[in-house]
Design a binder for these strands. Structure first.
Length: 849
RNA sequence: GCGGACGUGGCGAAAUCGGUAGACGCAGCAGACUUAAAAUCUGCCGGCCUAGUGUCAUGCGGGUUCAAGUCCCGCCGUCCGCACCA
């Protein structure tokens, strides 16, 4: 092949992508003697086009996958589509297209875009969750979960749009109104399917402790979400003998500080009393109105309604506490009722001060032990119990234990654990999702669809021009025979939450037999995923649900592992500055896209009228701010390798990456610079060695490898730049020629097309494999990783005063003597003897005068 | 309100264990090559001054240490998550 003076990225991209496909380069080898590496990026939703965030995510995963191949791993690196969900139905309603057609078209075009990036993906494993082959197996797993008692049906509220006759997701409710119809949203009670994730609350919490290679931030977010609280649950008796209600507290130690009891406006007792108390009914209605408005929550004013009822204090029946209905008690946490201890809870104190209720001190951290508590700041710190009868003098923990044991002994309460985590409601009253495989029969009740009748396939002939769930309205689909009695019955018309689809796809990538969800033996080989990469927006729900499914399948004996993702990495966003002009009072600014703009050193102008525009902050690329850059346009202009290189450069991968035209141009120039260097693999000069360059080369081999392994791509990029600089500056030698050759392999994971092109242009004897995709990562020579001379800093009183170059590994006395012999140091010391000399071998000498 | 992360040149950032702060890139400046431009190459590129192997500098103020961007305490700011969780 004749070597072109410039690297033709477009032709090369297509050529090597075809070559990899022809050679089936990225299929797993399934050779047992190689260690496995399962590299997975979160699969995309097929929204239409890929965006720069995808490019960054998949570039990172790809570098790691290619590096693992080069270092002798059997790599599983698959791609698929999270293909069910609401946008497809929205498109159907807006554009009159079919959700399935819209989704499949999007997949086709996005697949094409991803392939242009040259990703080392085993495309034979591609899957889409909207494919019956996939969701049919999901239905089978759902039936298994049902059989294992992990699926239940419960009544639950949904947001109901009375105009569109549809259920709305929380994010579709804006200021209490449906986003499309603008109608006031109602709460409607429906019978829905739930997965019992709360059965695993403790396991999911404990399991976080073992996830060492997950970001602390994500573990903390999951911990808070699961929200374990331990405390006491007990019953209040109403004065007068009527049945009371249960309360939960995490502070049973403060029980003698109780001055009122409070129940939620949604508490059944409050609702019952409201039936013959119009004022209470009005108060409850008022609380519910406020609940929807975000600003009201911000201000957080405590409101209450005195029911006139009183309850007995459990440890002192003579003491009666008033019962209030209170807006800050939530029905869906704990028991929906509390006792108020204003001295030691800020919310209770705010409330008590407003309604002039008594405030009793029961915890003291100083000499101040007065029963009457003053001030507007509750004391929530440590201390000893006071004014609390048999608890006096105990620590908080001792008092908690004493109360719990007394309550349990006397039978009026018990120690309990309360979780913030709720069971996972998976019913969606929508068409474009996995049909829930159940049948409702008048005589037999709710019956699972027999497995041999799976998949329950979505009907294609659906109509989105009328409102409501198309499955429910479909003329024939839902009418079936009961599998149990053979009588008339109807199908469940709810579909599964799309988070179910993404809770097990990593298993199906590893193994996808046609007759069952996966083959346990194959799953055993590949799972867990060694490195999972995706956006932090999935820190809670997706990652928690996937962990739950893995544990559930483990409990059912279907898989060996309990955690699906051994190592998790959450990457930052791609950002861009914004360009806008003010449109005057009360109007939003007018935004411009980057291609409408001419950027100069100190500002930006609109190309069309050459007048200035305002350059705004660097923020996440979004359509509304128009600060988006289309990956296809970048690939057309610069090719895949420049785009990949820029994505990996400069910013640490967990941080946001500011996209800039100058940045991608810099990447492009570097691609060309490397191309020129790669032409020098035979230029050996006089054939001599260059020891200094050899060191730099081998340090780079080791350093770049370490950085890639740790996902420190920006550091790997910097080291490659530095090496390229060193090679360019070096005189031709055998070492330099070898460095040029080795550099091709060092950049191969990041710039695979350039590397293949350079590899193919090498003389045959220099190529050890046909494709560089099959080449091995170079080995660093340990002897060359350390320098034999070191520069040692000489400090006086911590300030740098001189440096000296010495042989590596000299003992402290020699180094100290050398430092003190330096003329500059002698001059500064002026003949005085230093008080102290600290020597850090091979690093520095610090002289304390 | 609670929890967390972060704060280093004009910009993105390095500094792996407390040991020479600013590697590498972008932008900029000066020069070479060129009829010219692009490309390419060379050099410079935190502040201050008395111009030195000077001095100050890692958000601000303290502390520990021979030595602090790094550890500790207190502020300020930015971003993220959760939010009346009993």
């Amino acid at each position: 092949m004749t070597r072109e003076p410039r690297f033709g990225a477009l032709a090369a991209d297509a050529r090597w992508q075809a070559a990899w496909e022809a050679a089936n380069s990225f299929a797993t080898t399934d050779t047992a003697d190689k260690p496995k590496a399962y590299i997975l990026e979160m699969f995309p939703y097929p929204s239409g086009r890929i965006h720069m965030g995808h490019v960054r995510n998949y570039a990172m995963g790809d570098v790691l996958a290619r590096f693992k191949r080069m270092t002798g791993h059997d790599v599983l690196h698959p791609m698929g589509w999270d293909a069910f969900g609401m946008p497809a139905e929205n498109a159907a309603m807006e554009k009159g297209v079919h959700p399935g057609g819209w989704t499949r078209d999007n997949i086709a075009s996005m697949r094409g875009q991803l392939k242009r990036l040259g990703l080392a993906i085993d495309w034979s494993r591609e899957l889409a969750t909207c494919d019956p082959d996939y969701y049919g197996q999901e239905q089978a797993l759902f039936l298994d979960l049902f059989a294992a008692g992990l699926v239940t049906r419960k009544e639950s509220y949904v947001n109901w749009d009375p105009v569109d006759m549809t259920v709305l997701a929380n994010e579709q409710v804006i200021d209490g109104r449906g986003w499309r119809s603008g109608a006031l949203v109602e709460k409607k009670k429906l019978s829905q399917w739930f997965l019992k994730i709360t059965d695993f609350a403790d396991d999911l919490l404990e399991g976080l402790g073992g996830l060492d290679s997950w970001p602390d931030k994500v573990r903390l977010m999951q911990e808070n979400w699961i929200g374990k609280s331990q405390g006491l649950e007990f019953s209040f008796k109403l004065v007068g003998g009527a049945a009371g209600f249960d309360v939960f507290t995490t502070r049973p130690d403060t029980l003698f500080g109780a001055s009122f009891a409070a129940i939620s406006p949604d508490h059944p007792m409050a609702e019952r009393m409201a039936q013959d108390a119009p004022e209470l009914a009005e108060f409850i209605a008022e609380c519910r109105r406020q609940g929807t408005s975000a600003e009201q929550l911000e201000t957080g004013e405590k409101l209450g309604f005195d029911t006139g009822l009183t309850v007995e204090h459990p440890l002192d029946p003579a003491l009666h506490l008033p019962v209030w209905v209170v807006n800050y008690v939530l029905m869906d946490y704990g028991t929906g009722a509390i006792f108020g201890c204003p001295a030691h809870d800020q919310r209770d104190l705010d409330f008590a001060r407003k309604y002039e209720l008594p405030v009793y001190r029961v915890i003291a951290d100083s000499d101040e032990t007065a029963h009457h508590f003053t001030g507007d700041e509750a004391y929530t710190g440590p201390g000893k119990l006071v004014n609390s009868h048999f608890l006096d003098g105990m620590t908080i923990d001792e008092a908690k234990a004493a109360i719990v044991s007394r309550a349990e002994h006397e039978g009026w309460g018990k120690g309990t654990t309360v979780w913030r985590l709720r069971d996972w409601g998976v019913s969606r009253q929508r068409y474009w999702g996995t049909p829930i495989p159940f049948i409702h029969c008048h005589s037999c009740g709710t019956v699972p669809v027999p497995k041999d009748q799976l998949p329950v396939v979505l009907p294609e002939d659906v109509d989105f021009s009328i409102s409501g769930n198309p499955l429910d309205r479909h003329p024939t689909w839902k009418h079936v025979r009961c599998p149990s009695c053979g009588g008339d019955a109807v199908r469940e018309t709810d579909t599964l939450d799309t988070f179910v689809d993404s809770s097990w796809y990593f298993l199906r990538f590893a193994s996808s037999p046609s007759d069952r969800p996966f083959d346990p033996d194959v799953v055993r080989r590949w799972l867990p995923v060694d490195q999972y990469i995706g956006g932090v927006e999935h820190a809670i729900l997706h990652l928690l649900y996937a962990r739950f499914w893995t544990r559930a399948l483990h409990k059912m004996g279907m898989i060996d592992i309990v955690e699906p993702f051994a190592s998790l990495f959450t990457q930052g966003m791609v950002t861009h500055e914004t360009y806008s002009r003010e449109q005057g009072e009360g109007l939003p600014p007018l935004y411009f896209t980057p291609d409408e703009i001419t950027r100069t050193a100190d500002g930006a102008t609109l190309t069309a009228d050459a007048a200035a525009v305002q350059v705004g902050r660097v923020i996440k690329m979004s359509k509304s701010k128009k600060n988006v850059v289309d990956p296809d346009a970048i690939l057309d202009q610069y090719g895949a390798d420049a785009a990949r290189w820029f994505m990996l450069s400069d910013s640490p991968p967990e941080r946001d990456l500011p996209w800039s035209e100058a940045g991608i141009e810099g990447a492009w120039r570097f691609v060309q610079r490397l191309w020129r260097l790669f032409g020098d693999t035979e230029n050996i000069g006089d054939g001599g060695e260059d020891k200094a360059l050899a060191r730099k080369l081998h340090q780079a081999i080791a350093g770049v490898g370490t950085d890639i392994e740790a996902l420190g791509f920006n550091k790997a990029v910097a080291k490659i730049h530095a090496l390229a600089n060193d090679i360019e500056k070096a005189k031709p030698s055998a070492t330099r020629a070898e460095a040029c050759l080795t550099l091709i392999r060092l950049v191969a994971p990041m710039m695979p097309h350039l590397a293949e092109e350079a590899w193919a242009a090498l003389p045959a004897q220099q190529r050890v494999t046909t494709l560089i995709a099959d080449a091995a990562w170079p080995t660093a020579d340990p002897a060359l990783l350390v320098d034999d001379e070191v520069t040692i800093a000489i400090q006086m009183a911590g300030k740098l005063r001189d440096t000296m170059t010495l042989a590596k590994g000299l003992d402290k006395d020699t180094v100290e003597a050398a430092a003190l012999a330096r003329p500059r140091i002698a001059e500064l010391l002026g003949g005085a003897t230093p008080k102290k000399v600290i020597v850090v071998p091979d690093r520095l000498v610090n002289i304390v005068p």
